[in-house]
Design a protein around this nucleic acid. Structure first.
Length: 461
RNA sequence: GGUGGGUUGGCCGAGAGGCGAGGCAACGGACUGCAAAUCCGUGUACACGGGUUCAAAUCCCGUACCCACCUCCA
């Protein structure tokens, strides 16, 4: 069975056939770094990390580009509110995002280009579009350049919308509407500098000083690193329109075939609503990581299919964490460290449009088999292999404890071991009241003790 | 108005014509000094109304409700 994936453009699951055998070029729209990343933001990162890992497992040489949008209206507005330079805010949030990705074991892409580092490439692309008659400089002297939607008959093909059916609402900013577009649906390729904007947020161009529109950034960066045609373009569902529609239109209008497959991950919502700042900070990654380990959060995200809408709740996260501990318990007992072969059922599940839920079912089935077996080693090796490819191997150094953690663990271990020796003596004396009292005392400190054939073991509750 | 997606047992979440994915929780049993972990067992779920079929949660028609996108958004 070959790898199959759902293509948003054709709306069907189809075989993945790369442009060049053995290679896969992947572009994913990263975040606009304007605020702390929350659980929803990170889903895209995790989902496409799983894709990247799976493609690598299948033997593809993967070039994975995930950009950072580090200049836009919101960054300018928020940085002004906070009394920061726009680039200061963007850089801070970029680092926050990196921390979040690290905490969730999201492997870095091949390269992470920043929009502001690719202005010349964007200018070239805009120029091509003007020369081909698909873009025009606004007549009002604003320095804006717009894509001419009516000049591109295929406009709307990605999301199957007809231009005439689209809401004719113009830009939210009435000033901008006043700058006159040929059609209200025309979108900005280049935004002329406004008086109120800082000089650092403007770059020279043939049309005057200004900054790029959002959509052109991705087209230019994808083109630079992956070439005029590449295999997979990904992002969140919300980006299908207008962002991806516009990317495709402007790239193809400039004679670039662009992406062969479009992949979109669904949302994580809370209380039926999109996550946003208005819901407060409880769902930012740093906040969630105070209550859950990164590996547990990743497990929760990976358990759902990437195209399924997830209703986030801490209850569901608790359940996922409990389930994951079941896997960890098994691995602890088995004591195997070398990954083995992937079960065929797991491979089939993953090949079917990254069927992680079915893959998880296989994982748990193998855990049960292993728990039943006299020698759990073969199953444990399989489990390790499956976790590995999902980025969920607890032994992965990415989750690693830092030096202080290890020293703390050693210190606690010494103390608990002393207590457990006293308890063992009490048990040997059949003094169970004392034995239980000791265990209760340890438990009150947040440490669970279990008696195993190999003697007592402790772990954080 | 246009374009998509959804409604599955106490909860989370797969599947997409025939065999009850899987997890969490619960209950019973085994094991244990007691626990924990683990194993075994217990659930007759697919929004509603029609239809097609030997057979429908899965296909068709209709209805209801929910959500997303069409404006920055993962």
């Amino acid at each position: 069975m070959t790898f199959r994936l759902y293509d948003t453009a054709t709306r069907e699951v189809r075989d993945f056939v790369p442009l060049e055998e053995g290679k896969a070029g992947l572009y994913v729209c990263g975040l606009t770094v304007q605020s702390e990343p929350h659980v929803g933001h990170v889903r895209s990162g995790v989902n496409f990390d799983v894709l990247q890992r799976w493609l690598r497992h299948l033997g593809y040489q993967v070039t994975f580009i995930r950009n950072v949008t580090d200049i836009d209206d919101k960054i300018l507005a928020k940085s002004a509110d906070q009394g920061l330079e726009w680039y200061e805010l963007a850089y801070r949030m970029t680092r926050e995002l990196e921390r979040a990705y690290d905490a969730l074991n999201v492997a870095p892409p091949t390269y992470e280009p920043a929009a502001t580092g690719h202005i010349p490439e964007m200018v070239v692309l805009i120029q091509e579009l003007i020369e081909r008659g698909h873009a025009y400089v606004a007549a009002d002297g604003s320095g804006d350049v717009y894509f001419d939607v009516r000049s591109w008959p295929q406009y709307g093909e990605l999301t199957r919308q007809k231009v005439d059916d689209m809401e004719a609402a113009g830009d939210a900013d009435p000033q901008e509407t006043a700058r006159r577009k040929r059609d209200p649906r025309d979108f900005a390729l280049w935004k002329g500098k406004k008086e109120t904007e800082p000089a650092t947020a403007a770059w020279p161009s043939p049309w005057g000083s200004g900054r790029p529109g959002w959509h052109i950034e991705c087209s230019a960066m994808a083109g630079k690193y992956l070439g005029p045609a590449f295999d997979i373009h990904g992002g969140g569902v919300d980006l299908r329109f207008p962002h991806h529609e516009n990317e495709q239109a402007q790239s193809r209008a400039a004679g670039r075939p662009f992406a062969s497959y479009w992949m979109h991950n669904a949302w994580i919502t809370t209380a039926g609503e999109k996550m946003s700042k208005s819901l407060g900070n409880s769902l930012t990654i740093p906040a969630v990581l105070q209550r859950y380990r990164g590996i547990e959060l990743r497990f929760y995200v990976v358990s759902a299919h990437y195209r399924s809408h997830v209703e986030f709740s801490f209850e569901a996260l608790d359940e996922a964490a409990a389930g994951f501990r079941r896997i960890e318990n098994f691995l602890d007992r088995a004591g195997v460290t070398e990954p083995g072969e992937l079960p065929q059922a797991f491979v089939d599940a993953m090949n079917d449009d990254l069927g992680t839920p079915a893959a998880m079912a296989v994982l748990f089935d193998v855990v049960r088999d292993g728990n039943r077996a006299e020698d759990p080693a073969p199953q444990a090796a399989q489990v390790l292999a499956m976790l590995d490819v999902l980025g969920l191997n607890p032994a992965d150094s990415a989750w690693g404890a830092d030096g202080d953690d290890q020293r703390l663990t050693d210190a606690v271990d010494a103390l608990v071991t002393g207590l457990l020796e006293q308890r063992a003596q009490a048990r040997a004396d059949k003094d169970f009241a004392t034995a239980d009292a000791i265990r209760d005392r340890i438990k009150a400190a947040g440490i669970e003790v279990e008696d195993t054939p190999d003697g007592p073991k402790w772990s954080l509750a």
